[in-house]
Design a protein around this nucleic acid. Sequence first.
DNA 1: ACCAAAAGGTGCACGAACGAACCATTGACG
DNA 2: CGTCAATGGTTCGTTCGTGCACCTTTTGGT
Lengths: 242, 242
Amino acid sequence: MSAPVPEVGRLPAAVLRPATANVFETTVEQLATAIRLGVFVDGEQLPPERELAERLGVARGTLRDAIAALRDSGLVTTRRGRGGGTVVTYTSPEPGSKPTSRRGAALADALDFRRVVEPGAAWLAARQELSADQRTWLVASADAVREAAQDTGAHRIADSRFHLAVATLSASPMLIESVTRAQAVLGEMLAAIPVLPRNIDHSCDQHDAVVDAVLRGDDDAARAAMEEHCDATSALLRGLIG
Amino acid sequence: MSAPVPEVGRLPAAVLRPATANVFETTVEQLATAIRLGVFVDGEQLPPERELAERLGVARGTLRDAIAALRDSGLVTTRRGRGGGTVVTYTSPEPGSKPTSRRGAALADALDFRRVVEPGAAWLAARQELSADQRTWLVASADAVREAAQDTGAHRIADSRFHLAVATLSASPMLIESVTRAQAVLGEMLAAIPVLPRNIDHSCDQHDAVVDAVLRGDDDAARAAMEEHCDATSALLRGLIG
DNA sequence: ACCAAAAGGTGCACGAACGAACCATTGACG
DNA sequence: CGTCAATGGTTCGTTCGTGCACCTTTTGGT
């Protein structure tokens, strides 16, 4: 291999990734993301501590610390005793009301990443044999976004739930994780900057196009529809990143 | 939201992911992956411990433990003193000589995931303003694969280096990580099952098509070429997963 | 009203991971 | 040959994370 000198350090620099969070921080982030994306909605109860700790693969003490942090952030409340547990109290903030700590480069990267993994998930979802229940769920998820059009916060939650639903139907754990990550950053961006209301009607049509293609099993159409949808959001947000 | 009952547990089950590795294990895996994929090739020296620990975001003690594990696996040797360090001794194993511990479902998922993220990375790479050095590097990476055609082990390394090069040129950390993960699993699969030699000539042409499209800045062509390439490998491997 | 079960709350011992300091080896250079 | 710097090797005290056992609170059911 007669590669020029600059190549020597390229792959290591690109591939080696620093760990940036410990177990506690990772647990907080995973739960906070799940709550902010509507995996658990306002008023909904998280699984019991023992179950949740096992599911997340962490010690119960660590999970308790994480839940305490969520409590401090106002995302949940807890009550002890039978019938008690951890209940979500989070509602999506008004756009523009929460600054994000992420840098512009990371935001742009997440938009690029999203542009790849969300259409990919839609493409794969369209190739799955979907049950009647799954089909019903997908349609209901899209309907829920439309129904929440008048309430900015609820709309945000319903929107991310819709995207997660598409990803879930891909039945690919790796893609679900990727879409979740992309949605988490998107949620941060949208909370940090105002959303133009006129985009909402158009995005419901784009959702419907995705749903239609997935239900028809047309993978290329599903991907194209989701690409169009991501591009529309992306164009809106890139102008604001700088 | 009038969703049916099954929907209540769908998102949490899909989105909540258990932690499966501790810091030591993660470090071992990251280094082993980098070595197995050719980020550091046989005879090449890893960065000094102190630097590597900082780059990976772990304590030096943990890194030393990880390097000891790599030593035990025969991937590296170490020498103390000035001019010393950790040197890679890994060469790609003969196909079919190393069983994989991953399950069929995880393998299939990785193939699906790869089918999404590698074309996506090629698409994004084609949209980048590439320097002359980067272009030279990309071409050299593809050439290296062709030159290694007679040596199965070296070919495997050159092939994964080519794919990582494409991902690196996407300039998207999130996509680079995703492609790395996909390549890691692919490498395991290929090490576990024999490769039919007749596929090699064809894949170099597919590489060239990717390179050509990326250099021309044709994002759709880059993506299509990489899709075709991934599909060819995938078809070969899926028949063997079961 | 009482009991049992669900669920959060607490404490403890141990191992993992951390950061810092120091030691030993090795080789380049004057 | 001696010195110094690079690099791996070792030790130590602290914090984090773990698994386990036990306690307290609360409520549903009898």
